[in-house]
Nucleic acid binder design. Structure first.
Lengths: 114, 114
DNA sequence: CTGTATCCGACACGATACTG
DNA sequence: CAGTATCGTGTCGGATACAG
């Protein structure tokens, strides 16, 4: 547990980074193409989005498939393994909804106490 | 949700960083002093441990109380708010226990595919 | 004992421009 | 359309030494 090399330290896989979880959520309702992801994630530089997608693909959480046709493009989809993260992400959001106000309050109280 | 300023983006509060969650776990069974934390967290530089503890305190997840007596010292304890994170952390560990092997397999498969 | 001071390297994130 | 190339920035984590 306390060994930094312990794989369990990777628990929040792709959640620890800034956009991984959000990208997964964007794919929850079905496959999306690169440009479709850029709509909700407009603030993400293309380079960063690419890096995030590569990392998710590398970890087997999403697939990347080239699509012929017109217009040609690339489609990203969540794998079954990736879907197992959704429960986890939901837990994140529930915790936030329930307790984040208290955290923010503690934070501002801490500031004024300085 | 997609606004970077949205507070829900802070969901993995103090989990996103490297040691926050682990420090909380160290306090699960009761208060600990600074030096006691340094035993399991021997690899953490004192500066980093201090930063982590300050951040947790700032967010209202732990308390820091000065203890007179002998030896004098400081005691850290989880607050009720901090305890609400344990379910969340447990979910992390369960996910890892169940699915991490698949991630590692995908990762090595990805490497060899290059 | 409980930190703080200082310095450093690595890396994540980002803006912009360009390409097959 | 789907990226890559390049460059820049800031923050995080860490080692070491020192102080109240």
């Amino acid at each position: 547990m306390f060994d930094p090399a312990c794989p369990s330290r990777l628990s929040p896989v792709r959640i620890g980074d800034k956009w991984g979880g959000l990208v997964l959520l964007c794919l929850e309702d079905g496959p999306r193409r690169f440009s479709e992801l850029r709509v909700p994630l407009a603030r993400v530089a293309p380079k960063v989005l690419t890096e995030t997608l590569r990392a998710l693909e590398r970890d087997g959480l999403i697939t990347r498939t080239i699509v012929g046709g017109s217009p040609p493009g690339v489609s990203y989809a969540v794998t079954p393994l990736g879907r197992t993260m959704f429960g986890f992400i939901a837990a994140c959001r529930e915790w936030a909804a329930e307790h984040l106000p208290a955290v923010l309050e503690a934070r501002s109280a801490y500031e004024t106490r300085l």
